[in-house]
Simulated scan of single mutants.
Amino acid sequence: MKQQSLGEFEELVLLIVASLHDEAYGVIILEKLEEKLKKKVNISAVHVTLKRIEEKGFVKSRFGGITEERGGRRKKFYIITSIGKKMLDVQYELRTTIYKQIPEISFG
């Protein structure tokens, strides 16, 4: 079986999904990303990434109820899976290990 990978933007989206728990859907994920990154993000990039990380098994989705405010359309909610959480743990450990190898240098 091929080792799953996680790109930088995928990791950010997965982190936001995990932080929102069962309340994560496209627009709120977009808003949180823009807030944290302090720049505009394309909603299509968020949706494509959500589809990709769902195909990898890192998130699961479900549809919410139909609402008038959305013109009868349903929100698609995402929740992190145990595989997704393990992948975030691996990424965190990798990044932390490398970060700790940076020498104590003063940049004044």
Rank of each mutant, 00 (worst) to 15 (best):
I29P: 09
E35S: 05
S5K: 06
V17A: 04
L6T: 05
E34C: 02
S82D: 14
E68L: 15
G26V: 00
L37E: 00
A24H: 11
T81Q: 03
V13C: 05
K100Y: 08
L94G: 06
G26C: 00
R73A: 13
S5P: 09
S82H: 14
A45Q: 08
L6A: 07
S44C: 01
G108F: 10
I16Y: 07
E69F: 15
I102F: 07
R95G: 08
D22R: 03
K76L: 09
L88K: 02
V59T: 15
L88T: 02
K85S: 15
F9P: 01
E104K: 14
Y92S: 05
D89R: 02
G26H: 04
K75Q: 12
M87T: 10
V90Q: 10
S61T: 12
G84D: 12
L50I: 05
T97G: 09
T67Q: 08
Y92L: 05
I98N: 01
T81A: 03
K60D: 14
K56Q: 13
F77T: 03
Q91D: 09
D22Y: 09
I80E: 15
K51T: 09
G71C: 08
K51S: 10
R62D: 11
K2Q: 12
T96F: 13
K85P: 15
K86V: 14
F9L: 07
E55Y: 14
K39Q: 04
H47I: 00
R73T: 14
K40I: 08
E10G: 06
S19M: 05
K85Y: 15
Y78G: 01
G108P: 14
E34G: 01
E8G: 06
K100P: 08
F77M: 04
Q4H: 08
P103Q: 05
G7A: 09
V90E: 13
A45N: 04
L12C: 05
E93Q: 08
L50F: 14
L88N: 05
T81W: 12
D22I: 12
M87L: 14
E104Y: 11
L12W: 10
G57A: 07
I98C: 02
I105D: 00
K38L: 06
K100F: 10
G65K: 10
A24W: 13
D89G: 07
K36V: 01
K51H: 13
V48G: 01
V59N: 09
P103D: 00
G7T: 11
K2A: 13
E68V: 15
G84H: 10
H47M: 03
L88D: 08
T67C: 13
Q3I: 15
I43G: 00
L94Q: 07
E104H: 13
R62N: 11
H47G: 07
H21D: 13
G65L: 14
I79T: 13
H47S: 04
L94E: 02
A18N: 12
F58V: 03
I66G: 10
A45F: 12
L88C: 06
G84M: 09
F107N: 10
T97L: 03
K51M: 07
I28S: 02
K60E: 15
L37V: 06
I53P: 06
G7M: 06
K76T: 11
L33D: 01
I29T: 01
I83C: 09
G65H: 03
Q101N: 12
